[in-house]
Structures are given as structure tokens and as C-alpha cells.
Design a protein around this nucleic acid. Structure first.
Lengths: 213, 213, 213, 213
DNA sequence: CATGAATGAGACTTCATTCAT
DNA sequence: TATGAATGAAGTCTCATTCAT
């Protein structure tokens, strides 16, 4: 008779989603069973199907929730009046911080969706592509402004940039690269430096927005 | 009475491997059944298990066969006395040409192994890592020679470089980028230009070994 | 609105076990399929795996359930203050009555476990051995009391006794011996008479606890 | 051009049978594959099927070869003019010595045929039964001669006797009883003593044909 | 006789999803 | 909402047997 308002004590739907993140990260989407998620969330098996139509839909939900935030971030960054290099830095920073704050979720999104080209990657190709387009738009504008070289197509540049970022995150996920606060911040600079400045030794007087460490 | 030597008329094992490449590329590893491979190869179901212990082992075999060739190519390139930028170009060229000559096989390797971080990628992590190390070694040497900047770790640079290459191939596989002879050759230059020269507009008089288009 | 307690209308697990007894007895463990059990029980295929990990585990469960009862019976008999011959009679009686009351179950236990030395018999050797030990303990005590001769080791006597009992049941199972209420009761006496009294003609004034027929 | 007579250098058929005995004893009939037998025999896979119609037939052959020898031995024993107790001793002795001389073969016959009631035991029931009948005939004659008691049917006595023998062999096979030359000889006496003399303590002046140890 | 590659039916087990309560 | 028992389709792998050489 207590709680009479509509708000439930706990949002079971959220409970399930959060549990799914942990389970997917730990066991992988295909290897885990729906019962593992229910167990992790501490809810009954059937309740998962009360809130979600399928196991797939849980991952879809997790991905879309987060990816939309990323897309909006990219758009927002592009709208700002800052140099393109800073825009790319901002995007890199957003992604890296996303991993820093919730490594499980980002691992799931990258490993199970973005890199899972044959399954969810294919399903969400349109969404994923939008991120590329957003980045390509930044590149294109920079090219028109003369800040970026024009002999590399924006699409291509966007792919290379995103590929580098994703690979670095994959490196963290699979312990190919050291992790840590310092590494995360360095990575932001290094990615942008690599993609914008290139690996070649040149006379460098300015660095990425003074963030060089 | 012809063929009297021990060589069989057709190498059924090879037949199965080649069929598996087509089936994996078309349907994906997890989606296809072993019978699909047998049907595609035109052999009996059981023969697949005569030559391979499991469905997994078929993919393992395909991956290892090809990946070892890549690893050797990287080592060979590193041993040559050419500028680091040309080394990276040679590696990129090798990978892109591999895709050009057998897109199905490269698709399978990338989509089902290299990017399938939670399944085969994990199994073959050690092999995959060796490619990174090979590239990192090239970067490191270039840094010591003063040709590459030294503020980006070789491991990091290798990951970014390989990430860009793989993402471009993924772009072709999923039609995010246009394909074609011209595109393949351009991609080689662009990847190296992006990673080595950077996206920034600078005074560029020389390009990658005269291969600029 | 009737049944409101947690007790299910029918215990499906029990339903499956009982069906398995009938199927194993009719077709043999190796010859039957899991679907045969499910069909016999009138449940879905998957439910069998909801309650049991494997087909093997079903047989294990059936065996262990029943064998533990036998072991307890042997222990109980040994604890009583009756002559050793009566103890052996009680054990024989218990086994024979088990067969009388549920011939299918006893057939399964004997044919598929106890006599299946290479498969389940090996798995449950420790349990089976315990029965021998229990019988051997009775023999040993009788030898110390001077009731049984001491030149035959208890282990050996136990094996011979159990072997005779099991062979008689096998005789019933495979129609080598006539079955029926009368035969079951006679068998009890005859087994004990044979093992304790021997086949030799002697001056016999007393028989097994007055149960001679 | 050497060996021109019809006799082959080695009897491959025998080679296969002997190998099968070892493989069946080691791995069990159901657990081993036909290729295991071929490997053990050092012959090609297909040759097994040149000499035998099926895997089953190999076991059938092994069993029948040996069992016929046993049946003949029983008949021969029964034909002799010796006391029934000595007849049973002779049969026991024959079986125990068979195990002593070729434990693998006897293990296979007992474990895979005689005790495998649901598979080969059923197939060869008629043959197995003949052994019981042979023993029962001895008992019956002894009953008519007044040497054996008449209140136990010959069939029943035969089953009990054979059951005890088989169980003792099973005890050796599965290490429930100690093995060794001494144990084998003692077992002969003990089995006959148990079945003929009984476990009861009585005034015993004569033992089994002076073979008591 | 001898070889071993080739065949293909068969059975277990998994697990996402449904549904009655 | 909440529960978890019930469903059944799907796919891998085994291995006895056949057959071309």
C-alpha cells in the first residue's frame, strides 16, 4: 500500500539494460544467454521479454541510445566556430571520454555492433555511416576553407580518422595498448596529431590547441 | 590411364576451403551451415569433417594461411632499404592488392576474424598483434632515423595506421566507399598520405614516391 | 481456483523420469532417442533438457535414486539382530520385490548400469561396490561369529552372492526363467539356500527361517 | 616373386581379430571406431571391411569362436565319469584359465557380449543359454544320482553358478578383487565350495577333489 | 588383396521465444 | 508487472559403411 505514485521503485527496464551491458562485455553477445542477463539484473527470465521484444533489441537499444548521443555531439562540434583540428579533437575526446566513463558500454558498442560487420554492424550501417558523414562534413568544410588539403576525399579522410580512433579503443579493450588516465588524454592528442599532422617529421611550431603534453 | 602419379585429380580439401570463402563471404560465418559449404563445394557433408575437425577450423585455416603471408610481407618490406613512407606504402599496397585479387577472402578475414573481436579475433589475437608489431618496428626505426616524429609511440602509430587501412577495406566491403581499379590505387596513396603527411594543408612538394595521381 | 499452493498439477520432472524408465526398458538406453522419452512423457523435447543436463543424467538419476534405497536397505538389514542367513534372505527379498514391483526400473538398472560395465557401470562402480561391501560386512560378521565358514573371503562371497541374484533377475528379464508371484518367492529361498546351504546333498533339518516352500 | 604358395605371410584376418580384442578391451566396443581397429592391426581402413561385413561381425566372430570352445568343454566335462562337484570345478577351471591366458578376450566376451544384455547379449542369447543348459544338465544328473539336493531346479542352480563365476571374473576385470596366479586357483575352489558346499559352517571332512589350498 | 577418400543418415544439445498463471 | 516452465526449430559433429582405384 506504500508507494502509490506511478513511478516504480526501480526502473526494471534500465536494470536489464545495465545488466546486459555487463554481460555482453563479459561474455559477448552471442555467447551469453538471455537468462544470463536476467540473472545479472536479478529479475525473472520472462521479464526481459516484457520490456524487450528480443535479445537483439536489447543490444539495438544500447547501441542506439549511445550512438545518437555521439551523432549529436558530432553535429554540435561541427556547428562550433573552431578550427577543424579542434573539431576532430573534440570528437576524439568525446569518444575517448565515453570509453573512460563506461568502458563496458563502449566495448559492447564497438565489439558487438560497430566492428561486428556481419551482424549488427550491417543492421545499423545507416546510423554508423551518419557518423562518418558528420566527420566528412567537417573535413570538407576545412578543405574549402583551405585548412585541410584537398587531394584526399572527405569520405576517405573520415574513414581513416574514425578507423584510427576505433582501433585505438580496440587496443585498449584487448590490452594491446596500456590504459589509464594519462594514456586516455595522450591518445586524444596523438590521434589528432597523427591524422592531421601526419607521422612525418616536419618543422612543427604549433600543436593541437596547446594540449600537447 | 593418364595421371599416374599420386596427385589427386582435384584437391578436395582446397575445393572445400575455396567454397568456404565464398559461403562465408556471402552468408557470414555464423549464419551459414556446414552443409552450405559442402553444397557449394559439391562434396558430401562428411567430407568436410574428413579434412577439418570443425567449422571453426576451416575459418582458422583460411585466416592463418593468408595472415602468415601478410606477416612475411611485412617482415620482407621492413628488411628493404627504402624510406619508411615507402615501407608503409608497400604494406598498404600488399593489403589492398590482396583485396583486389580476392575480395571474398579478405572480406572473410577482416569481417569474420580481424574485426570479430569477441570470437575469432580473440583466438588469433597473438597473430594479429604480430602485424601491429611489424608495423611498429618500421615506425620505430623511422623515428630513430629522424624520418618520423618521435612524440607518438610506435605502437600507437601502428594501430592508427592499420586501423585506417582496415576501415578503408571495410568501407569497400560494405559499399561505403566506391570500388574499382582506380580507387584501389588511389587508396594506397591516400592512406599513406593521410597517416604520414597528415590532413593539414602544408607546402607539399614531394609526395609518396612519385606515386601521386 | 482449486489448487492454490505452489505444488504443480503434475511433476513434469517425475513424468519424464517415469517415461524414461519405460523407454529405456523397451528400447534400451543407447537405442532410444531423447525425443522418444519426450514423446512417451507427452512433453516437448526441450523440457527434457530443462530438467536434465543430458540423456546420461536421466539414467544416472534413475540409478542413483534406486541404488541408494538398496544401499540403505542393506545397511538396515545388517544392523538387525538376526542370523546372517536371514540377512541375506532379507536383501534378496528386497531386490526381488523391487523387481516384482517395478520390473522396468530394475531391468534398466541391471541391464543399462549394473551390467553395462563399460559405460554406466564404470561410472557408478563406486556405488555398486558399496553394495558388495555391505554384503561382505554381513559375511564377515557371520564368519567371526562362527556361523559362516572362514575359508572364503567375505569379498568373494559377496560377489558370488550378488552375482547369483543378478543373474536370476537377468534370467527373468530375458525369459530364461519363468516369472510369476510363486517364482519370485521361491527364488528368494533358492538363492539363499544355494549360497548358504550349497547344492550338495546333506542332512537338512532346518531351512531358511521356515520359508521353505 | 618369392612366396608362391597359397599361405599368406600373415593372416590379415587374424591380425584384425586380435587387434580388435585389444581395442575392444581397452576402449570398449561402442566407444572405439573401426579405424582404431585398423590402426591397431596396422592395416588399411578398408581391409577391415574386406574380411568382415561390419563392426558387429567382428565381435560376433570373437565371441562365437570362444564360446563354442566353452560349450564343447562343458559337454566334454559332462561326458566324463567324475563326481558333479568335480565337473563344476572343471568348468570353473576352464573359464578361469581362459581369463588367465587371455584376459582381454575374456573381458570383451563378458563385458561386451555376455553382460551386454541389450545389445550383443540379446543377439547371442541362444548361445549363452546353451551354456546354462549344459550346466543345468550336470546338475540334473547329479540330482537324479542323489549327489545334489533336488529342491532347487537345475536351471536355477545353473544360473546361480554361472552368475557367481561371471561376477568373479567381472571383479577381476574391474579390480574389485585382487588378481594373480594364486587368486585364480583359489577362486576355482572357492566358487565351487560356495555353490556346492554353501557358506554355512558345517562339519567338513572332504573338500573339492583334494584341491583345497 | 589392399587402400583411404567419400558418403550421408542420425542424434544430441542449445537457447530464443512463448505463454499460462 | 512478474514469473519461470514449456516449446521446438536448428545445426554441429560422428562414424559405420561404400567404392573407385
Amino acid at each position: 500500500m506504500a508507494r502509490t505514485n506511478a513511478e516504480p521503485a526501480v526502473d526494471k527496464r534500465r536494470l536489464i539494460l545495465d545488466a546486459a551491458v555487463r554481460v555482453f562485455a563479459r561474455q559477448g553477445f552471442h555467447t551469453c544467454r538471455v537468462s544470463d542477463i536476467a540473472d545479472e539484473a536479478g529479475v525473472a527470465y520472462g521479464l526481459v521479454y516484457h520490456y524487450f521484444d528480443s535479445k537483439d533489441q536489447i543490444l539495438d537499444t544500447l547501441f542506439l541510445e549511445r550512438w545518437d548521443i555521439l551523432l549529436r555531439a558530432i553535429q554540435q562540434v561541427d556547428a562550433e566556430e573552431i578550427p577543424p583540428r579542434e573539431k576532430l579533437y573534440a570528437i576524439t575526446s568525446f569518444i575517448v571520454d565515453s570509453y573512460r566513463h563506461d568502458p563496458d558500454l563502449m566495448q559492447v558498442i564497438i565489439v558487438e555492433v560497430t566492428r561486428a560487420a556481419n551482424t549488427f554492424g550491417r543492421t545499423h550501417l545507416a546510423h554508423i555511416r551518419e557518423a562518418y558523414y558528420g566527420i566528412a562534413a567537417i573535413v570538407e568544410r576545412a578543405q574549402r576553407a583551405g585548412t585541410f588539403r584537398s587531394d584526399i576525399t572527405p569520405d576517405f579522410a573520415a574513414l581513416a580518422f574514425y578507423g584510427a580512433v576505433e582501433q585505438v579503443l580496440t587496443g585498449w579493450i584487448f590490452a594491446l595498448l596500456p590504459t589509464g588516465e594519462r594514456e586516455y588524454d595522450q591518445a586524444k592528442t596523438h590521434i589528432v596529431e597523427t591524422i592531421c599532422g601526419g607521422l612525418d617529421q616536419t618543422d612543427r611550431t604549433s600543436s593541437t590547441a596547446g594540449r600537447a603534453d
